[in-house]
Design a protein around this nucleic acid. Structure first.
Lengths: 234, 234
DNA sequence: CCCCATATTCAAAAATTCTTAAGAATTCCT
DNA sequence: AGGAATTCTTAAGAATTTTTGAATATGGGG
């Protein structure tokens, strides 16, 4: 059974989360600030951490950084400001997922499940950390956050990087603009069609020799975009 | 694929909902009052619940509360009185969405999709089973949005693709032009007979060797169209 | 075997979707 | 604060798809 540490200075939120997680058969441990979280981590074997950003004494971001120094476990960060998503996921910090407050408890539970599934399936994180995706001359190293085209390093912005990562992780699979937006921004796509399209354009300018005839990042008319697998001549 | 429990004491409504959900590839389970719903929940793994408010024995509200005590899954409540919306969605009860009766089946389907989408994050998690439909030499890969005939890739437009997907998902089943239109366009079919017919023609041109003697996409006179199961020489 | 409802074909007009560019707004860094 | 980098918005033009309506063909009951 999995032990999940929930850390938030609002006790009601912690209890609410506990109820939902307990329903799913998880064992819940509680902490009410970053210091307590660190203590709990030392004392118990924790399999997943849910932690709020804003807390007294030691906030969630700092706590996460501290914990990452010596532990590898899935960390889900709660935050009131959805704009922080990039920073948090952009992995300066090392969180695995991000949920905006106020959140739907079921969604949180879904993400917990998803993270646990991911970590257990791939064994320990160590195995997973060789995260290098290749496709023809295009290479993305998710440990170093580096992208190269035919050996030449390419500099992508965080959003561009995350979009490319999504597509490289699922080569051949088609993603709608809607899916891309929701996956990267973690919020409902509204009038964001062009936004994504522009980022696609920028990525193409950087990874394609001729953006007008993309070798890798192709459009699927009326549906979305995909990463074309090299040697799929069609 | 997802299991959806539909609960209403009006059997006609349950059946109607079943038809629409089945078209989208969902597996539907049925219950006709709250007690039955609870039983079904115990016996099966349900991913989403659609439940009416007014029912004999145990009404939808009480059933929802009971179910929430031990299950966490998206719940959509049906109700005749739209004034109840607040009460139902206000966390008191714990429903995730609310649809007023009489409802548009297509809207219900849209909401089902939306709720399920919320709890399945894409990208990071191991992808759900690759959805590939086969029939003789005809193959449709719904992840890649690719269709091949005897190994040869075929380029379909979005509408053509969606019509073919509908037929491939329900091989052998006959769909009226009306049903096809409503299923693909998500709106009332009006004078759209020709439109669908034209798309059928285009699909045939692309997937049939001889469109005049279709092997796969056959007409059923006076009724509609179907995907003929290979080896069903009739 | 004739007739009528139904199905098919065709091409042009209308609508949609994608690409591209440029500038505004925002965030980041020093 | 000021400049640089990044992200978002807007809009026009290009590419592609969808719709439309009329002409043509076809099936099958009487």
């Amino acid at each position: 059974m999995f032990n999940i540490l929930v850390c938030d200075d609002d006790r009601e939120i912690v209890e609410a989360i506990e109820i939902y997680l307990a329903q799913e058969g998880y064992h819940v441990l509680k902490a009410y600030d970053g210091i307590e979280a660190l203590e709990q981590m030392r004392k118990n074997e924790i399999h997943l951490l849910i932690i709020d950003v804003m807390m007294p004494r030691l906030d969630g971001i700092r706590a996460t950084l501290k914990i990452r120094e010596e532990n590898s476990l899935p960390i889900i960060i709660l935050s009131a400001k959805s704009e922080d998503a990039d920073k948090i996921l952009g992995l300066n910090i090392g969180a695995d997922d991000y949920v905006a407050k106020p959140f739907n408890p079921l969604e949180l539970v879904a993400r917990v499940k998803s993270q646990l599934r991911r970590y257990t399936k791939l064994g320990s994180l160590a195995e997973e950390s060789a995260k290098i995706y290749r496709n023809g001359g295009l290479e993305l190293d998710d440990d170093r956050k580096e992208v190269t085209v035919d050996g030449q390093p390419v500099k992508l912005t965080p959003i561009e990087y995350n979009i490319l990562l999504l597509l490289m992780r699922n080569q051949g699979k088609v993603f709608s603009i809607h899916q891309i937006y929701e996956s990267i921004w973690n919020e409902e796509a509204y009038g964001a069609e062009n936004t994504v399209a522009v980022h696609i354009r920028h990525i193409r300018e950087k990874i394609e020799i001729n953006p007008k005839e993309p070798r890798y990042l192709k459009v699927v008319w009326g549906i979305g975009y995909k990463m074309e697998k090299a040697g799929d001549g069609n």
